[in-house]
Design a binder for these strands. Sequence first.
DNA 1: CTAGGAGCTGGAGTCGACTCTAGGTCAACC
DNA 2: GGTTGACCTAGAGTCGACTCCAGCTCCTAG
Lengths: 139, 139
Amino acid sequence: MSEVVPGLSIGEVAEHTGLSVHTLRFYEREGILANPVRRDPGGRRVYHQDDVDWLTVCLILRGSGMPLPAIRRYTELVRAGSGTEAERLMLLREHRERVLDQMDQLRKCLDLVNFKVGVYEDVLDQLAASSASGTDIGR
Amino acid sequence: MSEVVPGLSIGEVAEHTGLSVHTLRFYEREGILANPVRRDPGGRRVYHQDDVDWLTVCLILRGSGMPLPAIRRYTELVRAGSGTEAERLMLLREHRERVLDQMDQLRKCLDLVNFKVGVYEDVLDQLAASSASGTDIGR
DNA sequence: CTAGGAGCTGGAGTCGACTCTAGGTCAACC
DNA sequence: GGTTGACCTAGAGTCGACTCCAGCTCCTAG
């Protein structure tokens, strides 16, 4: 997907992920990174490929509405290593339900919007036609 | 869908829609009801079928992530009557794009989650199998 | 050697969308 | 006629998720 680079600055990661540097630091405070970010001698964050990969997973989860506390919990479980698989599975299954619910809602909304868009397109076509044929005066 | 009733109290509407009475009043303040709600002689809100119908539409839009300001704008346009169809159409088309984007994100997330659920199910099956055959000690 | 730019921290501020409180009205039941 | 319960208003509070600020340290280019 992306080339493997040895170390990335927070700014570079921001650019890669689309998050702001603020948000990256915020996520770190919130315990959302798998391992506490390494630092260079000057105390600056150095991100590695695995951090970026993990962030990418988190972004997908966030983008589908998983709240930060749930992502933190999941992160903790992954960090804790083996023995936590059952809870991770549970968390993921719960989230899957919520994702499916959301898809359902979106489908309903899409139906509604498609219907209404159709209605308004017709209305506007009518208006265009009648004004073109001169049966309508201005406005 | 639902029987037509002459007048509903805010509590009844809350029950019908799943919104709290607080939220109903809040939405009204926010200008999200098509017509300012009628009142009985005592000053209490009396909702009619059209209010409930409109609320239902709004809920679908909200549930698909349309922000309140956009819903308010749409409401204003509907209230303003004919002549505003073009803008309504624009609003709806924009929202449709956002809905489609969200569906895409959700699909990506669902793929990820399905994959991970599969992995963890396998891991747990393995564990169960090996502990059943006695090749594993406790924990 | 200094000016700029990217990072750092701790903490404050913002924003959207509710959610609740205080203090009051009103009709109905016991 | 007192109490309950649903409703009213104005305004305050909460919560999640950022987003920004002040004041500092480094490094690099001019």
